[in-house]
Structures are given as C-alpha cells and as structure tokens.
Design a protein around this nucleic acid. Structure first.
Lengths: 355, 355
DNA sequence: CTATAAGGCACTAACGTTTGTGCATCATGT
DNA sequence: ACATGATGCACAAACGTTAGTGCCTTATAG
C-alpha cells in the first residue's frame, strides 16, 4: 500500500513466478483471449490490487501512443471566466479517464506557441486552446488533423478548426438594445483586444444595435485595446475627460468592467444614477456590487463541456468530417446597473440594497 | 516545421546517415564528452532545429525517471483563491521547465486520493496539494520522501510534510480585534469545514480576540460547516432567525461571505448600517461591492510561488532535511463593511457610493 | 497409438530516449 | 614497423508497457 516507488508488472511477475506478459494480460482483461488460466488470472489480480498497482503512464503512452492526457492552454487561469472553462474540461476529462496538462499563456502568443510545442512533446492526444493572439499562423499546422485541437472562447474566421464560443454578436446586440430601450442613445463601447473574435463580434453587435434603432455610430465612443482591467480603467478615465458625453457603458469583459467601475468611482460618478453599465461574463459577486451588475452571461460551463466533448470526438475519429464551430447563446441578466432615463433620476430603479 | 507527427531522433539519424546515439549526444551538449566531430555536431543541430525537433517527453521520462512534470491538486479551480495559487505554481513551473498536471478534487477526499495515485502513475516528480479532508491518513505515504509533496493553504498538525499557508490565527485575531475596536461585542463566526487548519486556526484567532478583550465566547454565535457559498447563506439565515443578536459577522471564506451577503440582503439587512462583516481572501471586485468589503487578505501569490519553490527544493534534494511549515502573514484591508458603533448609525462611515 | 486441437504460458520486438562500452581509423612517437 | 593514444562513431541495454508469435503440455478424436 505505502510504497517507496511505483510498483511494476515485473515485480508482480517475479513475486508470482510468472512472466511480465502474462501479468499484463491478466490485468488488462485479455486473459480469455490469450488463454491465461482462471486461477493464474485471479492470483495476479489479487496481488496487483493488494500492491496498489497502477501502470506507468509514461511507458503506456510510449507503447500505445495514447498518453491519456490532453492539453489546455488559456490566457490567464486566475480569470474566473477561463478558470470556469478549465474546470469543466478537467471534470469531463476525468470522467473519460484523461488527465490534463494546463499551460497559462499569460496573454502572450509567444508563450502560447511554446506551450503548444511542449504539449506535443508530451504526447497529448488533443488540445483545448483559448487563443490569445490576433493571428492564427501557428495554428494552421493543426488543421491537418494529426493532434486534434478545439478552440474555445475565440475562433479565427479563416481557420479550419472546430470551436466553441458564445454568440457574442447577439449578446452585444441584446445588451445594446436593452440600453437603448432604457433611453440611452450615447453609449460608450469599451473594447478588448482588436482582431479577436469576441471583440469583433461584440463590436459588431453593438454597432448593429445602434444602427437598428437609427442611432449614428460615434467612433469617438469606441475605445480600448485589451481585455484587462487596466484598459477598462484608463479608457474610462480618458472617455470621461473627453468632450463627448455619454450615459452608458458597454464593457467587453468582466475585467474591463471592474476597471471602469474604479474610474467611475474615482471621478465621482455613481452607478447607475450618473452612468449605466453592462458587462460580459456573469460572476457570483455581481449581484452584490454597489450597483448590481447587469451582464451578458456567457455559458462558460457549456463552453468547457462542449469543447472537451468535441475534442474527444476528434480524438476518437480523427478522420471524421471536421465539425464547424458552435456558437452558444448568451443570456442578458438584468440587475441594477442600468438606469431607465425615462424615470426620475433621484430614485434607484430597483433593489432595496442601499435603499 | 509543420509535421504530421512529432519527429524523432531516428528520423534525424536516418536523414544524416548517423546513429541515434550520435544524434542524441550532439543535441544534448554531450558532443565533446563523447568525441562527436565538430562538423557532425553542427549538421545534427541544424537539421534538428529546422525540423523543430523536441524530444518525446514520455520516452525521456521513462528513461531518465524524470518526467519534468509536477502535479497540482486543488479543491476547486474555479475558486479565485485556488486559481491564484495554481497560476503562480504554473508560472514558476514553466520558468523551471516543468509542466503541470492539474486535478480538481471537487472538495472530495476520495477524488483527492484517486488523483494522487493517478499523478504517481504519471511519474510526476512532485505534488503541490491543497488538501480537502479532515484526515491525513492517505498522506502519510508521502512522509517517506519518495515522491516529494508540499501542502498549500492547509496543513495537518501531526503530519511530517512541508507546507505553506496563511497565518490564519493572527489574521482572524486582527480582524476580530478590529471589529471590537469598532464597538462590536457580539460577533457571529461563520465557520468553514471543521477539522481543517484554516478553519481551526481562524476560529482560535476569533476566540483569542474575544478573550483578550474580555468578551465571553458565545458558542451560539459560532456556526457553519463548509467553506462554500451555500453554507454562508444558510447559516446566516439561521443565525438571523435565532434569538441571539449580533452586530457583526466574521466569514471564514470569500464564498461564505458571498452567501452571507445574499442572506442579509434577503432579510433586509443593510451593510454596514445594520450588520458589519469581514471576510477572508482579497479579490479585485471587493472594493466595488455595495459595502466595499473589509477583508483579511491572504498572500495567495506568495503561497503559490513558495509552494513551488519548496517543492523544487525537495525534488533536487530529496534527502535534505525536511523543512517545516511556513505561515505567511495576512493583511487586514480596511474598506467599508464595518460600521463603527460609536458613530451615529444613519450615516455611512465612508464612501460616496450610494451616497 | 497417433494425429490434432486446445490450453497455458514465455519469448521477442517495439515505442523513443540516454548511457556504458566497443570497434574501427588515423596520427604520433620510438 | 609497431605499439600507443586519440578521434569518431555505432552497438546494446535499459526504462515499463503491450502484442504477435511460438513452445510445451495435456486432452480429445480417429
């Protein structure tokens, strides 16, 4: 039970006076097939169990060319959104007897590239990737279908790889429409990293929302260049200082929203009295914010689960027809961070908190 | 560059008309030692580079008995506190050319046990474990020193394993003292899982804080049995319904605090006007809560970094003297969730939000 | 009593790597 | 001319596993 080092087939074989081959077959359920005696089979299984035998996965992987591991590469594992995805992948992987090697690319495409090569050398059977960069040159090698890969959260239009992401276009469209329905016409858009699908899709949804309601698009209200908190903070500061008035903010990530909140607070703006805001990504704490945050919720659980499922499919049928991408619907969760401009401003629109 | 499957030493050897041995030596910097010709060395290195050769880690691990991987086992990777630890371990591991296999034990000791066995079979060189259970029977096998292990966040008093955790006793003591200094005498304590070091240490700190100020300990104000949100919610509900009055809450985890907040909100209690609260674990969103949360901040970055460093030390010197545990100091971050009972109750103690 | 089948197991190679050793060839010193 | 030493590389084994095949024994059929 408590052993100094992992025990091997050979040790069991020696102890029983059998060959390694026989032990292997007795343990892998191949006993019948290879005519191992009933009694021998029992003895092997008993001893193996009592010794707590577990096959060396390195040897197994080498021999079988199946390492029972998959790789997961994400920009920042401490971002709850990505952590949520990783968790679902991890849980599902465990159900399917896979282990996961996790790489944090730190929002760097160079590290991402390195990590992919590293995972390959580890013999992973597949990779779930939340890509960070604006280009996909390093991903074309995976189109071939050796080493299966599924993209999560982001995708690249030209790239022939399966992906799972939120329907960011409609999410942003719905959020923008909601703001407009509440009387907002000048809505700032706090962008994430340009060239990434979430950013582009959300931006288009935002623009479409304005256009559909006959509101001209003011490019001066569209600003920002990263999904990080610092960007939300600085961009909001700048926007508030600019001459362009606006009554609402559409923040393209949870981190951007946090940064915006800080800037608003510093500049003396109250939410939602002086400024309305909608963010992306639902989180457990959002109902408890000073202004309970109205958000476009992404189905991160489903994204993670589906990403793994699609990867597993590709691992099992590498030559099956390539699935396209899947866009999962978002949900607008209405809380209290959007003011209805039609109502008197002195009153909070909802919630008894801070009443 | 773009290859269908990983390339091997043999392929390079064949292409150059050399033996695998020579190629291996030319690539591992052993050329001089084994008298490989200067020119041969160059040719091998060039070709390897141009082919993007990376040694098969499975074979490498098998041969060298060094897999260049470590295992990380945590209760819930989507909990920002643990995600933060994992991230630091991942970053440091990468610096040291280690990959990490992550297991989410889902707060289940059975899964934890399974995961440890799995990691062993993967040939990991060491394990960082945030244990979940109340007993450490399954960990004594690691005292021996084969398979190095470092505990993070929690430890077990009797167990001879190095650990890194917060100084929860003093953290709770400081928080309790702060509450008392603000005039609170009846302070509810929302516990986590009994038998775990964070819970016990925080509880003792709480009790010590009361005792030092001559306040009797009321066991009716100490309740709860898990670190999860649901527990915070239910326990708070129960406590509020009970006959025992209290003016402040000490929540023993970020999740518990979130649950408490929800209960308070539902029961019509305002924070901090009607109820003060202090939680553990600092998070980016806490300043933006309805009542910006005063917390005992844990040095999760340092915990993760140090855990990896200690593990690396043990990997390099398995027979070195066993380090004891390390307790890292916490920081009380004062925000606005504690009301000073000496001040008039109608006014918010600070902040202009919701003014 | 012999051919045939079936039962029970071991031998061998292979996965890709590293490492100890051995076998050539060439130059050098005497 | 002959031992000696360096130089340049290849061979073989090993890590732990699986899978194809072969060998021996016993039972069954003719």
């Amino acid at each position: 039970m408590t052993h100094r080092q992992s025990i091997t087939l050979k040790q069991i074989a020696d102890q029983l006076g059998l060959s390694v081959t026989t032990v292997s077959r007795a343990l892998s359920g191949q006993a019948r097939r290879y005519r191992i005696g009933r009694e021998t089979e029992q003895r092997v299984q008993q001893l193996a169990k009592s010794l707590g035998f577990a096959p060396n996965r390195l040897a197994l992987g080498l021999r079988l060319k199946r390492s029972s591991t998959i790789g997961v590469v994400i920009p920042d594992i401490s971002n709850p959104f990505f952590a949520g995805i990783v968790r679902q992948v991890a849980l599902r992987a465990r159900d399917s007897h896979y282990s996961i090697i996790v790489c944090d690319s730190q929002d760097s495409q160079d590290i991402e590239i390195e990590s992919l090569a590293l995972l390959r050398s580890h013999g992973v059977e597949g990779i779930v990737l939340c890509p960070v960069g604006q280009s996909a040159d390093h991903l074309v090698q995976f189109e071939g279908g050796d080493l299966p890969m599924v993209l999560a959260d982001r995708y690249f239009p030209g790239l022939q790889l399966p992906y799972v992401a939120s329907d960011n276009f409609h999410g942003a469209l719905e959020a923008t429409s909601y703001l407009i329905a509440n009387g907002h016409r000048r809505i700032a858009c706090l962008r994430g990293l340009a060239g990434t699908s979430p950013n582009e899709d959300r931006l288009h949804g935002y623009q479409e929302g304005l256009t559909r309601h006959g509101i001209p698009i003011d490019n001066g209200l569209i600003a920002g260049d990263s999904f990080l908190q610092q960007n939300g903070y600085l961009t909001t500061k700048l926007l508030l200082k600019s001459a362009r008035p606006f009554t609402a903010i559409l923040a393209m990530s949870n981190l951007i929203a946090l940064g915006a909140l800080r800037a608003l607070s510093e500049e003396g703006f109250r939410t939602p009295e002086d400024m309305s805001i909608i963010s992306f990504d639902d989180q457990p704490y959002l109902p408890h914010l000073a202004a309970p945050m109205t958000v476009v919720s992404q189905p991160s659980v489903e994204i993670g689960q589906l990403a793994f499922k699609m990867l597993l499919d590709r691992i099992h049928q590498p030559d099956g027809v390539l699935q396209g991408g899947v866009l999962l619907p978002t949900t607008l969760i209405v809380r209290g961070s959007v003011r209805n401009l039609a109502e008197p401003s002195s009153e909070r629109t909802q919630r008894h908190v801070c009443g």
